[in-house]
Design a protein around this nucleic acid. Sequence first.
DNA 1: GAACAAACAGTACATGGGTCTGTTTCTTTG
DNA 2: CAAAGAAACAGACCCATGTACTGTTTGTTC
Lengths: 203, 203
Amino acid sequence: MPRYDAQMASSNYPKGLAKREEILTAALAIVAERGYNRATIRELAEAAGLSKTGLLHHFGTKEELFAEILRRRDVVDEAQIERATSAGLDPKISDLPRLSSGVPGLVQLYTRFSAEATDPEHTAHDFFRERYERARERSRAVLEKFRAEGRLPASVDPEQAATALVALLDGLQIQWLYDSSIDMAAEVAFFLAQLGLDSPASE
Amino acid sequence: MPRYDAQMASSNYPKGLAKREEILTAALAIVAERGYNRATIRELAEAAGLSKTGLLHHFGTKEELFAEILRRRDVVDEAQIERATSAGLDPKISDLPRLSSGVPGLVQLYTRFSAEATDPEHTAHDFFRERYERARERSRAVLEKFRAEGRLPASVDPEQAATALVALLDGLQIQWLYDSSIDMAAEVAFFLAQLGLDSPASE
DNA sequence: GAACAAACAGTACATGGGTCTGTTTCTTTG
DNA sequence: CAAAGAAACAGACCCATGTACTGTTTGTTC
C-alpha cells in the first residue's frame, strides 16, 4: 500500500515523471477547451491514457493537479521575466498580461482557482497567499529600482503601488474573461503612466 | 405540476415572498460563517426551516439562489451610492470597498462567483458580464463628471481609468481575502490620487 | 366554496471526487 | 542477477451533493 503522499508529487521513476507530464499537458488542453467546470477527473485521466485511479496516484486530488499546473505557469512566467531582466532589458511590466495570460484556459483556471482557494481550508490556499506575497514583493522591488534610477517619482509609494498593480492584473483578467475586447496591456501601461513611470523603450 | 420557472423567481404569494427572504438571509449567514464551499443546499434549506425540495422550489438551482443574493447586494450598494450622490456629496469612490465588502462572506461569495461565472455556460454569466459593463459605465460617468468639473486632468482617459478602477476593486478584494491587512480603501485612494483627482473632502 | 397554483415533503437518481484492495511493472541493491 | 520493495496502474465501491419526479397540503382568488 504505497498510498499517495500528499506532501509531494514525488517519485523519480522516469515513467512516472513522463506520465505526470502527459497528464498535465492533457489537463491543460482540456481545461482550455472545455473550461475548468466540465473537466472531470475521469475525462482528464482518459485523455492522458489511464484510469482515474491511475491519475489520482500521481496527483492526490483534483485540486492538487491543478495547483501543479498553476505552479508551472508561474515557473515558466518567472523564468521568462528573469531572462528578460538579465538580458539587460527592463522587465516590461506592461507585457505581464501577455505571458501565460494569452491562454484563455489558463487564465480562467487561474482566476477560478485563486477565488476558490480563498477558503482557508482549500488545498491551494497557502500557495496563493504566498504567491500574492511574492508577487507584491517582486513588483515592489522593480518599482523601487525604477525609483532609484529616477524613473519613478519619489512621491509614489512602491509598496502601495505594487499591491495596486497586482490587483489590477487580477481584476483585468476577470473582466477580460467576460469581454475579450478589454486591452489588458494597454490598461497596465495606462496605470504605469499614471504613476509617472518614465518608460524608455515602451513600444 | 407547477414546476419551477427558470425565467423568474416569481409568485406573489406573501408567504412565498417571506420565505424567499428568509432563505436568502439564512443563506448569507451560512456562507458568511462556513464559506461558500461548505454551504450545501440541504444545510441552507434546514437553516431556513424547510426541506431542500422546498428551497429548490423557490430558487431553481443553487447557483440561482446565490445569484439572487449578489443581485441584492448590488441593489443595496447602488442605492447607497445613489443616496450619497443625490445628497450633494461626491460619490466617495474610495469608500466603495467599504460597502458590502465589509462582509467577508459576501466578498468571498462575489469573488468566487464572478470567477466561476466566467464560464459562458454558467447561469450567472450574463449577469456578471452586464454587471461589469454597468460598473465600467458608471465609473466612467463619474470620472467624466469630475473631469468636467476640472477636478481631473484632461489627460486621463475616463474609459481607460474606469476599467482600471473596476479591475482594481476586484483584485483588491481577492488579495484582501488572503491577507486582511490589505487596506483596500487606501489603495483605491492611492489610485485616484495617481490619476490626479483633486479630492475635496477626503478624510 | 370550487378551482387552481403555490408551497412544500419524500424518494430516487446521476454525477463526480475520492478510497480500498489488489495486480503488474519498474528500479534498485545486495 | 535475483529478490525485494516501491511505483504505476486498474476495478469495484462509497459517499456527498445537486437536482428531477411524484405526490400532498396549504393558501389565494373568483
